Simulated scan of single mutants.
Amino acid sequence: MYIPSPFRDDDLENMRATIRCARLANLITATSGGPLATPLPLLLDESEGEHGTLYGHLAKRNPQWRIATIGDAMAIFTGPEAYVTPSWYSSKRQAEHVVPTWNYIAVHAHGPIEFFDDPDRLLEIVTRLTNIHETSRATPWAVSDAPVDFIAAQLREIVGVRIPITRVESKRKMSQNRPMPDRIGVATGLAASKLARDQEVAPLILVQD
């Protein structure tokens, strides 16, 4: 990922927060036939390794796990993002040399990938993923709510994914390269947007170093 110095974020906790908040990741593997990609939820186990370890699962019919991987796998996580119009820049009043851009947060996690089909390990991963996404509900659903034989049959149709993260990089592009009056204009414009995703980006503009 191309990361100009103003947008580089080496804070590990920031990276972990982006991974935790991402509802869906993209799993990328390189093969002799070209890159393969699958969108899927991944959980981060922060207790495993220096940077943590990612877990998830693929459908057993997905060919990605069957094709030999060249080098490390990469998981892409994205955070808040928004279009930025130059109309929000106060500097536009003095010069017309401004163009639109996009603000966003992205984390790329790299590491060797392991696929597994052990039912006990799969049940653990499915349970942990389910709990992560059900815990905020008023009446959370649990894997144990379903019949044991039904869950066992479902587990036979998936393959587990494990990626110990050996390298992680993060880009946090939030108008840090603009003068403060322009950043204030961007934050104000996004805050006034009718789109919830724009409003989510707005407060991030003014907290950058």
Rank of each mutant, 00 (worst) to 15 (best):
Q154I: 13
W65H: 12
L155G: 01
H97N: 14
P203R: 08
S170I: 05
N177D: 04
T31Y: 09
P4G: 00
T130G: 13
I70K: 05
D118W: 04
P140S: 06
K173F: 01
R178F: 06
G111T: 13
V168R: 03
P203W: 11
P181F: 06
A191C: 05
F77K: 01
N177V: 02
P119Y: 06
D72N: 09
A37E: 12
L122V: 05
L36W: 07
G33S: 09
R20T: 14
F7H: 08
I113C: 09
P181G: 12
A142S: 13
T18Y: 07
P41D: 13
I132Q: 14
I28F: 09
W88M: 09
G34Q: 04
L195C: 04
F115H: 03
Y83G: 04
D182F: 06
D117F: 10
E50H: 00
F115Q: 10
G79V: 04
N103R: 00
N62S: 13
P41C: 10
G185F: 06
A17Y: 02
M74T: 15
G185M: 03
E134L: 11
M74G: 12
L42M: 15
G185D: 11
N131F: 11
K171V: 11
T101N: 00
R93A: 12
L44W: 02
S144A: 15
I67P: 14
S47M: 01
D45E: 10
A37I: 01
A17E: 09
W141E: 07
T101Y: 00
V161M: 03
A109F: 02
A202K: 06
R128Y: 08
S32C: 01
E50M: 01
A192Q: 11
F115A: 11
R93L: 11
H108E: 02
D198C: 10
L190K: 09
S87G: 15
L24Y: 14
S32T: 11
Q176R: 05
P147D: 14
R167F: 08
I125Y: 01
I3K: 02
